[in-house]
Each structure stands twice: as C-alpha cells, then as structure tokens.
Design a binder for these strands. Sequence first.
DNA 1: CAGGCTTCGTTCAGAATTCAACTTCTTAGG
DNA 2: CCTAAGAAGTTGAATTCTGAACGAAGCCTG
Lengths: 158, 158
Amino acid sequence: METETATNWLTDSEQCAWRTYLDVNRMLTHQMEKDLQPFGLTNNDYEILVNLSEAEGQRLRMSDLAAATLQSKSRLSHQITRMENAGLVRRENCESDRRGLYAVLTDAGVETMEKVAPHHVASVRKHFIDLLSGEALSDLRASLTPVAEHLRGHRGKL
Amino acid sequence: METETATNWLTDSEQCAWRTYLDVNRMLTHQMEKDLQPFGLTNNDYEILVNLSEAEGQRLRMSDLAAATLQSKSRLSHQITRMENAGLVRRENCESDRRGLYAVLTDAGVETMEKVAPHHVASVRKHFIDLLSGEALSDLRASLTPVAEHLRGHRGKL
DNA sequence: CAGGCTTCGTTCAGAATTCAACTTCTTAGG
DNA sequence: CCTAAGAAGTTGAATTCTGAACGAAGCCTG
C-alpha cells in the first residue's frame, strides 16, 4: 500500500509559464533600475516618490509608507535617511501621535518627480505595456488581482 | 506652436495592471523566500540548485550559471562561495579552458534539492499556479513571452 | 609568434538590506 | 492612576549586493 503522498509536480506548460513569469520579473526590474540610473534614483527611491506625491499633503507616516511599499520599517528608515541626505524628502513630527513621523516630499523631491516621471512612464511603456495588447493587459490584471489578494492575506511581518 | 512632446501617461487601466503586476511580483518573491526559510535556503540558493540539478553532470560553468540566473558574475561568485561553505556545491576546474570553473552540485546538494523541491512546488502552486485557470496561465505565458524576448535583447551587463 | 582584444572569474570597497535590540509613546485593564 | 502590552521608529552589527579593477588565460591578426 502506498503511504507517501506523491508530489503534484508542475506540468510542462505550468512550469514554462512560471519560469517566463520569473524571468520577466527579474529582467524588467533590472531594466527599470537601469533606466532610472541616469537620474540617480533607484526603483525604491522612485516608488517612494510616487507614493508620497500621490498622498495628501505629500506626506505619509513611516509605517504607512512601509506598508505601501511592502518593505520593513528598518529598511524604510535607512532608505528615508538616504533620501533625506539627498534632499528629496524630510522627516516631520506628527502632532497626533508623538511616536510618529511623517516622511514629507521636499520641493526638490517634487521637482525630481516631475522631471523623472515622464521618462519612467516611457520606460514602462517601452518594456512592458506597449508590448501587450489591450486585451492581454486587462486579462493580466484580471488574472493577477486574485493572486495579489491571496498574497496580501498571507503576508506576515516584513 | 507646440514644441514640447506631451508625455504619454498610462491610462487608469494600464496603471492598475502595472501596479498589480508589481505588487504580485514583490509579494510573491517574499512569500517564496519565506517558504524556503525553514530549509535554510534563499530564492537565489534554490534557483542555483535547480539550474545545476538540471544540467549535464550537475555542473555548469560559472559564466553560464550567471547568465542562466540573470545575475552578475560578481554576485554569483559570492553566492557560490557561500553555498560552498554550506556544502551544497563545490568548484571544480575546467579541463578545456584553464580560466574556467565549474560549479558542481555535491551529494548534499542533491539531497537538499530532493528534500526541498516538493515543498517549493507546493508553494508555487498554492500562491500562484493554482490561483489561475489553465487558460489564464497559458494566456499569461503567451503575453509574457514576447516581453521576455524583448528584454533579453535589451539586457546589458549585469 | 607578438601584439592587442576579449573572456573568465575573483576581489575589494562602498552601498544597501536584514535582523535583533532598544527607546519612546500609546492604549487597555484593573 | 498604574502597569503591562503593544506600536512607531531608530540604531548598529552582520550579511549581501554592486560596480569597478584586476590577473590569468584564450583568441585573433598580421
């Protein structure tokens, strides 16, 4: 009698999809990083700029920013320190909670964002969006949304 | 007369697809990493084990392995050093090219691979594959393949 | 076969990331 | 009001990653 539970291996087709996904992932990240380099920004820098510039008063609590960008508080703290040194961002105290801090976009941060965003969008188009049909794109979104929700549920401390 | 070129911003739908993609990306990477932790492996460790175990003679030249895993030679060199210390892999000289080295899976490496693979596959299924329909999966692959090819062309030195 | 390119892989220094304290403040219970 | 538990952020040390520089070996080309 069979007592072992056989592993439910991936089919060739599943495996291929998975590997393609992983490859695109890595190459795309790398390409984005490369396209931001001339502006002296990393992907992480840019994402923080995006989050802050979309936020009310161009500011977010450290914790919220960490959650929004899916990184640990520690990492964000170091990151913000670097960006503060670069003059893109500053820390500001929070009135309502004296433990709290806001990360606030500086004027230089706003300017940087305005300068860089068009190039970044062009890069996203060139290397991703414009390579997919409108239908493919909405299918992609439809497929990935449940995955995102599933993962949000599963995510523990960063 | 208009001299500026207006930025071709992303539509809401494009933006949403893009952000979902990025989110899944990061959360999935994180989840995979977490699921490998109990075995003392990182994603990078695992991917190298996969590549080596599928290779002829369970060995690959450093350069080929770096290319296969899309990382810089420098990073791979460090990585292999660590895995060598962990006993998963060893370096072996290359007969035909005296500059070259092979990274070779050790017996312990093979065993680790056999032990971990089923869990990893289960994790990939649980957090990705099984959340998508067969059709979604093949669409995904079809959509992403051209992107992968595009990026492969664009990729410079790592 | 000499000269100069290129490739292979490592190394070093500097930057980024992780992980585990730790401080300060808030909040809930008794 | 006091205390214990938890949350917000920071810090510092150890680890990992990056990018440039390097030595050694192969490959042309004349």
